[in-house]
Amino acid sequence: MSFLKSLFGRKDAKPATPAGPLKTIEYKGFTIHATPFPEGGQQQLSGLIEKEIDGEVKSHRFIRADRFPGADEAADFAIVKARQLIDEQGERLFK
């Protein structure tokens, strides 16, 4: 029976979600949270960009297809990607 379960997957398995930011930095007035999560035996690149605008905290979540063997590598690259997004789009990220 366990062979069939491994072959067809378990229906009660929940998708992986980030437990919280692994790294957080400030960049050009934005706060970047690196939030990689396990996927397929590796770490999926994911992050959150936040900025307070007119007294309201705006946020933009991003997930990329990139996967890494470790969470630290995924977090470092999430910071790089977030900086790139901020440099290219700035506050337009929140529109």
Rank of each mutant, 00 (worst) to 15 (best):
V80I: 14
I25V: 15
P15M: 02
F37R: 00
E56A: 10
G20F: 12
G40S: 02
D54N: 13
V80R: 12
F30H: 08
F8I: 01
A75N: 07
F94C: 07
D12K: 05
A65N: 01
G55Y: 05
T35G: 08
I63W: 05
G70L: 03
P36I: 01
K81N: 14
I49T: 09
A74Y: 07
E26L: 14
A19C: 05
S46P: 00
H33E: 15
I79N: 07
F30P: 08
G41Q: 03
L4R: 11
K11L: 14
E50F: 06
R61I: 05
P21F: 14
D72Q: 08
A65I: 00
E88H: 11
R67L: 08
F8D: 01
L22I: 08
G47S: 07
R92P: 05
M1E: 11
Q44C: 03
A71L: 09
G20A: 07
S2L: 15
R83Y: 14
G20C: 10
L45H: 01
F8V: 01
S2T: 08
P38L: 04
R92Q: 14
Q42N: 06
I63T: 10
D76A: 12
K11W: 10
K81Y: 15
A78V: 02
A78D: 04
P69N: 07
G90Y: 09
Q44K: 06
P69V: 02
F3Y: 12
R67Q: 10
G70M: 03
F3D: 13
I49C: 14
E39Q: 02
A78K: 02
A78F: 02
Q44W: 01
K58S: 10
R10T: 07
P15V: 00
G55I: 00
Q84N: 12
I32N: 14
F77Q: 08
